[in-house]
Design a protein around this nucleic acid. Structure first.
Length: 430
DNA sequence: AAAGAATTCAACCGCTAGACT
DNA sequence: GAGTCTAGCGGTTGAATTCTT
């Protein structure tokens, strides 16, 4: 496959976009939506390939983009998400409204990596550099220029797992399933970010335009905090690391994709046994290499709609073999430090063999959350449809349209609370 | 002020997976 | 099942900009 066929055509412009081209593309999408990207350049009168148009739109012209410098909170969040997700820039970007994966990737490679190194933290392993050296990690031989890939240490055992030393100080106070109780915002262990990105986003939203694809209604915010500080302090030097010790997500975004990117990895056996949760078969896109023991360590919370291509493009242990997230190491070291992963590997492998991935949503897990599932899935579908038919002319209409399901979700916060509480109880019983 | 180095960031490239035929 | 098209991803490049000497 490879290169898109349109790229072979002659007379296609390359390089920077002129304002005139931007205007043409903007006008076209405003009037007609993008539809099939390969037809956009022709319809818009552009000498570009559809791929280029798409990229230009996504990374630059999209109206919901947040321009300007990254806030400290955003940087902190990126660091924490990178510790969990590795170089899955799109998934990281999904947690930063208005930011593109390209932007975040650039920031990481040009700025954050440097800052981490200055703090003595290996940006690849998120370990102190000294420890990384002692652990037998392959030396970083790449230059900053090419650090995007080649300095990833394939032998990394997982970012969060390697953070265990940073977490040890507070490891006693382990948390289970993070649930932000709206009625008890002061709940311990649920440090709320001072300025959650969502709220930044809402500021922007109220100030201007918004697209249907990313707009979020105001509403309750649930947090999936990592119980312990991940070892980063804000650049301001305030030492108030608590501000970003929590990953967050909007409860109204409680759909599969959100879970897949935010939920911490969880012991498959724990889920399957305590929650009746079916587990996915080996998913090569998530780093699994087979149904054997190795794959078992690479299972994730990934509630992605099985029919909608789970986390498209995520290559799991990427081409370099970097496993950004090892379930077992996280379980052992941070999230569920009491979990004896090793003893359960065999049984988990057995379970994995038997269980079908789509069952994750439609099987026994769904039974426990059937009401929520039915509703959220239909709403999710609505949003997806709206996205696919994105039309600038309908931004406002689409936005309000999308708010309706969001409002429906708001109308049932108790349902979510109940389900999450049940999940928490299940984890407590592990 | 000028030249070179370093950095930033938009854009391209190659690849993968899903949908479709 | 094979081939093709398409969307989307992460890695890389290189021009523009900024910084340093």
């Amino acid at each position: 496959m490879g290169r898109h066929s349109c790229c072979y055509k002659q007379k296609l412009r390359k390089g920077l976009w002129s304002p005139e081209e931007d205007e043409k593309l903007m006008n076209h999408i405003t009037k007609h939506g993008h539809g099939c990207w390969s037809s956009v350049p022709k319809l818009a009168g552009l000498q570009r390939c559809g791929k280029s148009c798409r990229l230009r739109w996504i990374n630059y012209l999209r109206p919901d983009l947040k321009r300007g410098a990254f806030s400290q909170e955003e940087e902190d969040l990126i660091i924490e998400l990178h510790a969990v997700l590795g170089n899955r820039w799109s998934q990281i970007a999904a947690q930063l409204p208005g930011r593109t994966d390209n932007e975040i990737k650039n920031l990481w490679n040009s700025c954050i990596k440097k800052k981490l190194r200055q703090k003595g933290i290996d940006p690849n392993t998120h370990k102190p550099l000294a420890e990384a050296d002692c652990s037998g990690a392959a030396p970083t031989i790449s230059t900053e220029r090419t650090s995007g890939s080649s300095d990833v240490n394939p032998s990394s055992t997982g970012a969060l797992g390697n953070l265990s030393h940073l977490l040890s100080e507070t490891a006693q106070s382990s948390m289970l399933l993070p649930v932000y109780d709206k009625n008890h915002p002061e709940t311990p262990n649920l440090a709320r970010p001072k300025v959650p990105p969502k709220e930044l986003f809402l500021d922007q939203l109220t100030a201007g335009h918004e697209s249907s694809s990313t707009c979020r209604s105001s509403g309750q915010t649930l947090y999936f905090p990592f119980q312990q500080p991940l070892g980063y302090s804000s650049e301001s030097g305030s030492g108030d690391g608590a501000s970003m010790n929590s990953l967050w997500f909007n409860q109204n975004d409680f759909n599969c994709s959100t879970i897949s990117t935010v939920m911490p990895p969880v012991s498959p056996s724990a889920l399957s046994t305590s929650m009746g949760l079916n587990l996915p078969p080996n998913n090569p896109r998530h780093g699994g290499t087979g149904i054997g023991s190795a794959s078992v360590d690479s299972l994730y919370w990934d509630g992605t709609n099985p029919s909608s291509s789970s986390s498209t493009g995520s290559r799991g242990s990427n081409s370099l073999g970097f496993e950004p997230q090892s379930t077992s190491s996280i379980l052992e070291n941070s999230v569920f430090p009491w979990t004896d992963v090793g003893q359960e590997k065999d049984s988990r492998a057995h379970l994995v063999e038997e269980l079908k991935w789509p069952d994750l949503l439609h099987g026994t897990f769904a039974e426990t959350t059937v009401a929520m599932q039915d509703q959220s899935q239909s709403l999710y579908d609505d949003v997806i449809k709206a996205e696919s038919q994105f039309n600038m002319e309908g931004i406002c209409a689409s936005w309000y349209q999308n708010q309706q399901p969001q409002q429906q979700l708001q109308a049932a916060p108790d349902m979510y609370d109940k389900d999450l509480q049940r999940m928490q109880l299940s984890f407590e019983n592990i």
